[in-house]
């Protein structure tokens, strides 16, 4: 026990002794703040569970998600060997949900990589450089913002062809403008601050100022925004899947599963409800996580 106590003291010290120590200490402080928010911890736990489920899907899934058994179609909840029942082709819903976690994570990860990074680039350049570049970039952003998101995504998928990758690209393309707006607004306030003036006086160029000084401050608010938007992204992907423009059958994508279950919703409600609950749980978890991260990452918060 005394060992752990000293580790804690080492992490909470006010006088770090090396760069690594200082970083770890800052991380630990953030973790303590995050941990005090129990709802955020719940969100994190759900997401960790989701990642583990996706990683170990073959071990966790009781049955093959693609194996059809027409003699056992549309079994209710709690049926023998099929905890969440089966769908119209007799496939085990639980197994499909477990494998579907992989697809959901894949979509989420790709969108979370593309959209905020594009937004960050556009927003910070636009905000820092200003002038006609700002005008051009912001008008482009406005054009993207003016379209209803799902409609634009539909148009992209229709043009590029149906499939998960194209769905991800379509969602990313429609998701970046709000991030660009946020990043630009933050950049405008950061740009005129004394610490940016100070680094200018050291002869730093715009590239260094944007990447090393402005990005670190914008990223935290973007991360929070991304986690809060994640629910919307999952729903958009599910929506595309539901419309038959995202993941293609027999892939166990949650939105596509709801779409399939729709036909039986009155008599066999669980076929659509179970994937719906899964989407709901993961979306909620991301929102809770985002709330907690906001407390930790807010650059205005002191210690």
């Amino acid at each position: 026990m005394s060992d752990r106590q000293t580790l804690r003291d080492w992490l909470l010290t006010e006088t770090p002794t090396s760069r690594r120590h200082a970083k770890l200490s800052a991380l630990y402080h953030g973790w303590l703040t995050f941990r005090s928010n129990s709802m955020a911890m719940l969100g994190l736990a759900i997401l960790v569970a989701l990642v583990l489920t996706a990683l170990f899907a073959p071990l966790l899934a009781p049955l093959d998600p693609f194996e059809q058994n027409l003699s056992q179609r549309l079994l209710p909840l709690g049926a023998e060997n099929h905890l969440f029942g089966t769908d119209s082709l007799g496939r085990d819903i639980l197994s499909r949900l477990i494998y579907g976690a992989r697809i959901t994570l894949y979509i989420v990860a790709l969108v979370a990589l593309i959209a905020p990074i594009v937004g960050l680039l556009v927003g910070t350049v636009s905000g820092y450089v200003g002038g006609w570049i700002d005008t051009v970039l912001m008008r482009v952003t406005d054009i993207f913002l003016a379209f209803p998101r799902l409609v634009l995504a539909l148009a992209f998928v229709a043009a590029l062809g149906a499939g998960i990758e194209n769905a991800v690209i379509a969602i990313s393309l429609t998701a970046w403008p709000p991030y660009a707006r946020i990043a630009r607004a933050e950049t405008l306030t950061i740009r005129s601050s004394d610490y940016i003036s100070a680094i200018k006086l050291q002869g730093a160029g715009p590239l260094r100022i944007i990447t090393k000084h402005i990005w670190p401050l914008c990223i935290s608010s973007l991360i929070v925004r991304v986690t809060l938007d994640m629910a919307g992204i999952i729903l958009a992907a599910a929506g595309l899947g539901f419309l038959g423009l995202g993941a293609q059958p027999p892939s166990p994508e949650w939105g596509a599963m709801i779409s399939e279950g729709r036909r039986f919703i009155l008599d066999h409600w669980w076929v659509a409800t179970m994937p719906g609950l899964a989407i709901f749980t993961v979306s909620l978890a991301f929102n809770l996580l985002g709330d907690g991260l906001r407390d930790v990452l807010d650059p205005k918060a002191g210690d």
Partner: peptide, 10 residues
């Protein structure tokens, strides 16, 4: 206001 809030003294 003159020190970057995310940069250590080092």
């Amino acid at each position: 206001a003159s020190l970057h809030p995310r940069h250590s003294v080092d």
